[in-house]
């Protein structure tokens, strides 16, 4: 709109601009401050932390604290917990994507008896998050001897109604003619899935991967229940395990270093996938 702004308008918009920015900056500071404190705490010594006032600028213990956390930690080396978390988060994210892609494919492209029933059954599980079905799930996992194992960490969380639903919606927007063209070209159903449907869904897959990776990474209750062996701890629950029971003192610098380390992988995933994410939004192709 080409409108000549009168002076009042400019003034008003200027103030609005100013306030928006101040608001945003305050918001960022509020969110960032605890993280900053955690970072500071991870670079000083234990005595610096417990003697008030709490330091606000990083100390010189960065290398000491982080290498201690990574290599020995408190119950288990943080490097190991990071690896466990990574395996679990990747397993959950990739597994969820694969399974929901396949089930959405089946629901959209094949006519089999009870198709609607299956769809609604999947949909129903949306109402049953891990926390609700945790006791029976624990029973089953224990029965299979999957306590303290990666499969125990991953499989119970791997079915995803949300992702299935999302892919279903996407597949339904793919023109039928495309499937027919592929059929005339000689592509059998799985070939069509791999060669055409999958590449066309890649931006959806990237977006879901980000969300699901973080979901998997942040799992707390489930790993807490089924991993009793410290070497199978994931990092998010591992932080809690580092807190002392009884009269032991907490090794705050190491705990804080662990917290900072626990935040890094999700950040890396978000930042690195963001480009694919945005590119996907810009050149949406159908």
């Amino acid at each position: 709109m080409a409108r000549i702004p009168d002076e009042g308008m400019v003034e008003k918009r200027g103030i609005g601009h100013y306030f928006t920015h101040v608001g945003l900056i305050i918001g960022v500071l509020v969110i960032f401050f605890p993280i900053w404190l955690a970072f500071v705490a991870s670079t000083v010594t234990q005595s610096d932390i417990i003697s008030p006032p709490m330091p606000l600028w990083p100390g010189d213990q960065f290398l000491t604290n982080y290498s201690k956390a990574l290599t020995s930690g408190i119950n288990a080396p943080v490097a190991l917990m990071l690896m466990n978390s990574l395996i679990m988060a990747m397993g959950i994210a990739l597994g969820k994507i694969l399974i929901s892609l396949l089930s959405a494919f089946a629901i959209v492209y094949f006519k089999f008896p009870g198709r609607r029933l299956f769809f609604w059954l999947i949909f129903l599980t949306l109402m049953l998050p891990v926390e609700v079905r945790i006791v029976p799930t624990y029973e089953v996992v224990a029965g299979f001897g999957m306590l303290n194992s990666y499969s125990g960490l991953i499989f119970p969380l791997i079915a995803s109604a949300t992702a299935t639903f999302l892919f279903r919606q996407f597949f339904m927007t793919v023109p039928d003619e495309l499937a027919e063209a592929a059929r005339v070209d000689g592509a059998r159903p799985m070939r069509f899935f791999w060669d055409i449907l999958l590449p066309m869904s890649r931006t959806n897959i990237a977006a879901l991967f980000v969300i699901l990776f973080i979901y998997g990474w942040n799992q707390y209750l489930w790993p807490l229940l089924i991993t009793t062996d410290p070497s199978m701890n994931t990092i998010v629950m591992g932080i809690k395990q580092m807190f002392p029971s009884g009269d032991d003192y907490a090794d705050w610098p190491v705990i804080m270093a662990t917290s900072i380390l626990a935040m890094l992988p999700p950040v890396i995933v978000v930042v690195s996938m963001q480009r694919l994410f945005i590119r996907g939004l810009v050149d949406s192709e159908k």
């Binding site: 023109p175 495309l178 063209a181 060669d195 055409i196």
Partner: peptide
């Protein structure tokens, strides 16, 4: 052994 041309072309977009 047929080939078909569709109304909306149905080209593979990727």
């Amino acid at each position: 052994d047929i080939a078909m041309v569709f109304q909306n072309y149905a080209l593979y977009p990727h």
